[in-house]
Design a binder for these strands. Sequence first.
DNA 1: AATTAAACTGGAAACGATTCCAGTATTGTG
DNA 2: CACAATACTGGAATCGTTTCCAGTTTAATT
Lengths: 372, 372
Amino acid sequence: MFYLLIMLTYLGGKLSIYAHRKDVYNLLMPRTKQTTKTGIIAIAKVAGVAPSTVSRFFNNGQVSAKTRAKIEKAVEKTGYRPDARAASLRRGSTNRIGVILPDAGNPAYSIAMRVFHDQLREHGYSMVLGCTYGSVEEEHKLLQFMQQDHVDGIILYTCEGPQDKISHQMLKQLLDQKIPIVYVGKQNTLLPTDNLSVDNKLGIEKAVRYLKRIGRKHIAFLSGDTSNWAYQQRVESFKRAIKSLKLKTSPKSILAHGQSTVETGSALFPKLMEQAPRTDAIICSNDTMAIGAMYAAQQLGMKVPEDLAVIGFDDIQMASLVRPQLTTIRQPILDIAQQTCQFLLSRLSGDMASMALQSLLLEPELVVRESA
Amino acid sequence: MFYLLIMLTYLGGKLSIYAHRKDVYNLLMPRTKQTTKTGIIAIAKVAGVAPSTVSRFFNNGQVSAKTRAKIEKAVEKTGYRPDARAASLRRGSTNRIGVILPDAGNPAYSIAMRVFHDQLREHGYSMVLGCTYGSVEEEHKLLQFMQQDHVDGIILYTCEGPQDKISHQMLKQLLDQKIPIVYVGKQNTLLPTDNLSVDNKLGIEKAVRYLKRIGRKHIAFLSGDTSNWAYQQRVESFKRAIKSLKLKTSPKSILAHGQSTVETGSALFPKLMEQAPRTDAIICSNDTMAIGAMYAAQQLGMKVPEDLAVIGFDDIQMASLVRPQLTTIRQPILDIAQQTCQFLLSRLSGDMASMALQSLLLEPELVVRESA
DNA sequence: AATTAAACTGGAAACGATTCCAGTATTGTG
DNA sequence: CACAATACTGGAATCGTTTCCAGTTTAATT
């Protein structure tokens, strides 16, 4: 009788007389607890068991054959699949790994990325990808995003130099949250992260030394991505090597601009020849640029390697496919990628949480082919 | 007095006399409601406001200047960042897009992938990547995973042929959940998804026709990834073109094996010459294989294009970098990628939810360079 | 058959956000 | 100054899992 009255006044459009007091209102008009249409409690109901049991079913917990059958039938019928978001929220881990690299379009990185993808997937992780294009700000944003997304671990091909601190705070926070980070490309002495890198300085040195040995007098350097520390370092190493080998090179023989692509290489080379026409050898900050430059040289009527020796950096597959084949400073991309994954996975497996820091500095090797 | 007694008996090691009944026990020993150490309610407490207000603060809701300041201070102090998982659980959307492609290491795809990454990121989406390597089972698994992960949309470079049905059920389910899918690589006539593809048949036809025109008599075909429908289709189209142009080609001039890589191309070519020594032209199912085959031919002392004409498919950057430059069937990878994103983004923006199906079949173009 | 141990199941509290509502403070208007 | 409109804030429910306990069945053991 009482309820009926309420309903009527409510349906009438106003809920005044009996429900002007909040407590009364809430009592009589609770949030419409609508029956869940999806989710584990729905399917539990269908199967006639408790949600906790269904959860166990999906997580290799112990469930009797009978119950298992009931649940399987219900799953079959409803097409139910557990929601990974909810699970991860409750459980803590997402089984997601963040991978940050300068450029997924550059073969040097996309090959590494493939290794990451395969290995991570094999271990049940999925991979979210972010590209920085050499921008430290972007790197920072991506890290922040990945923190909020609660990835379980991060592979970071950083482009930050030792002087930059933009991401430092963020990384520290991530580490405090016990999120393992593998740092690729440079050693971060300030933070306890595993790291892998190739000795850029040594690589460039080898190249310069070689060019001197084969009698080149005017060596130039072409670089892109000046905001990316790895490339900066290569330029710096070049300057230092020149000095220590007592070669003379005007600042005009060092050009740095744009992205490190084939196009940039092609575009930069003519400029270089204008500024430093006596150039008889160039080193480029990576293979794609070197290939671009080499072709530009040929277009200008120069013979490689007779008139111009060309040396790249990375040893991507393309290097041995172009003609003349590119002489280059090889970094073992695949090995690095493989090892990077190993570092991360061992951290993730957890039993090695307190494992000592792993650090690897690889020695690059000069691969002499036809272009120098 | 009463409580004290309970505490004592509990501390004594047993909780028997007063707590042997479940309800009494639960009453006296509620789940330790430990103070939340992290999360929005923690920071709300620090700032002295309600969680709902903090939420508004982070979602551009209306918050007064005073409150805003309080929250900012608290955020500053605690380093709090909202948890994207929880938000997505409650709100429904994840701002995550799944991208599935055959091989992220293949330049044809990695270039497309870069486009996806950049455009999606620009619109606030992150990208999870999955590679199938031509396996329909893997494609299915990835789709299933992405469903559970509740991505907001999917870009799918499928490798399923029209006969396969493995993923059909899954895709239907996804579409029922209003998750937009853009289908790249073939038209799916059974499902209402936007789709883009290049006319493989026409492309191959053009190539065969051209080879006939320049007087080649014994044309062979090299393919990899036989499980990937796109590649299958190219082989089939080849057979059909041969027949319709009344050329004679023995089944021995068609080899298909392994992944479509440079290495496979190199490995397959000598076998081909054994089986069909009179071959004077080959078409490969993609550029990387073509490059591999071309170099293998040169290694065998054959001259390209004089002794052997080589035609690839895709027109990746490398095609114009190798010597001789590769003649190839060009598909406008960048345009396709761009358009794919547009399709997806317009679906996601929602106001076009009921928009008509978008379907695009692009015409490939034969780019004649030096190798044929 | 009587215990004891083991396997299994159910109930309810989290995880950390968002979102309705309903209040309260603040401003604007005549 | 009164009163309406508007801006702002707080409370509680909810998203869909997992997990801890306690309780209950089944199996093992002597």
